[in-house]
Amino acid sequence: MYVCSCFGVTDKQVKEHAAAGACTPRQIASATKAGTDCGSCVRTIQGLLGRGACPRRELLEKGKAPAVALAPDSELAESQLAEAA
Rank of each mutant, 00 (worst) to 15 (best):
A31S: 14
E16L: 12
S5V: 13
A34I: 08
T36H: 05
V3K: 11
E16R: 10
S30R: 02
V9I: 14
G21R: 10
A18D: 07
T24A: 04
C4F: 05
S30W: 04
S5W: 10
I28Y: 01
S30K: 01
A18Q: 14
A20L: 08
T32M: 05
K15W: 03
S5R: 13
T24F: 01
T36W: 09
C4A: 08
A34T: 06
T24L: 00
V3L: 15
A34K: 10
Q27L: 09
T10N: 05
Q13M: 14
I28E: 00
T32P: 07
V14W: 01
K12N: 10
A34H: 11
P25V: 11
A31N: 08
R26N: 12
V9C: 00
A29W: 03
T24S: 13
A18S: 13
I28P: 00
T24D: 03
G8P: 03
F7P: 00
A20W: 05
A20K: 09
G35H: 08
T36G: 12
A29C: 11
C23W: 06
S5A: 06
T32E: 08
T32S: 09
P25K: 02
K33D: 11
S5L: 11
S30Q: 13
C23E: 12
V14R: 01
C6D: 15
E16F: 04
V14H: 00
I28W: 02
P25F: 02
A22Y: 02
V3M: 12
P25I: 08
F7W: 11
P25Y: 11
C6S: 15
T24R: 05
A29T: 04
D11S: 13
C4R: 07
I28Q: 01
A22K: 07
A18M: 14
A31C: 09
A31R: 14
H17A: 15
G35C: 06
Q13D: 09
G35I: 10
V9W: 06
D11Y: 02
Q13Y: 00
V14Q: 02
A22T: 04
T10D: 03
T32Q: 03
Q27A: 05
I28H: 01
T36F: 12
R26M: 11
C23R: 04
